[in-house]
Design a protein around this nucleic acid. Structure first.
Lengths: 127, 127
DNA sequence: TATTGACTTAGAGCGAACTCTAGGTGTTAT
DNA sequence: ATAACACCTAGAGTTCGCTCTAAGTCAATA
């Protein structure tokens, strides 16, 4: 698969994919003899994995660490597990923040609906 | 309330608070006669609100827009409602991404647990 | 044969959100 | 009175994660 195909498949720019490889986020992307990237299934799987993690806001440094451990083989399973557990905690925190904010947005949207409907005349919005 | 008290109360640096005011994110922070900020309840409420929204990842530009509309009074209720609704959608998307990633992390953590426990001998982790 | 088009690289540039620096003012404690 | 301390400002610097630029290689088509 060429970079333009991968780019379309995962909706990432070619620049982003090259950047990810450059910083060590993609282990061994195969190349055809004239130096052109030829993504195999494993490389694609990594891209998909990284995209998923990045979408959730995981830091690139952490992902590089994970990829590095992964490449070192079975001996790093314990450390990888630990890393993922930490990231899980962070995501749970983030989830909590988002839920709090959603509650607040819902409250305010409801308030604005009441104001617009005229069912609330005492317009004392308290931020 | 002085800036250092507010800073402690909301766990934001003084620099961040001053920055928020400078860019128009805090409507009218009162000042004592020698020019020192003296946060009243309303200013504190704004800080708390902004902190909540920022924690969920809402962009500063959007928050400035909201604050600006708020200051313009009742006539902007409809527009404010619309803005909040858009941000709500974004947060729901983000929530979805986080949930997907959490599922994936849980799967991998479980896999690593099995590997470590020795209950899974076929070590064919597929990223 | 010339040009088009997809790929390559190194490295510069960018936007967001702070964070820090330098220099200044005003109040309080010794 | 002088030092310490908390505050102030404008503006420069930093970090993250891309994104763009310039210059080059190579294969296919007019």
């Amino acid at each position: 698969m060429t970079i333009s195909e991968v780019s379309k498949k995962y909706n990432l720019t070619q620049d982003t994919i090259r950047y990810y490889e450059k910083i060590g986020l993609l282990p061994k992307v195969p190349r055809s003899k004239n130096g052109i990237r030829d993504f195999d299934e494993e490389a694609c799987n990594w891209i998909e994995f990284i995209k998923c993690m990045r979408n959730a806001g995981m830091e690139i440094e952490i992902l590089i660490k994970y990829v590095t451990l992964f490449r070192q083989g079975k001996d790093t399973v314990k450390e990888r597990r630990q890393l993922l557990e930490e990231q899980k905690s962070k995501l749970l925190e983030k989830q909590k923040s988002i839920n709090e904010t959603l509650d607040r947005l819902n409250y305010k949207i409801k308030l604005y609906d009441e104001i617009e409907a005229g069912t609330r005349k005492d317009f004392t919005e308290k931020i």
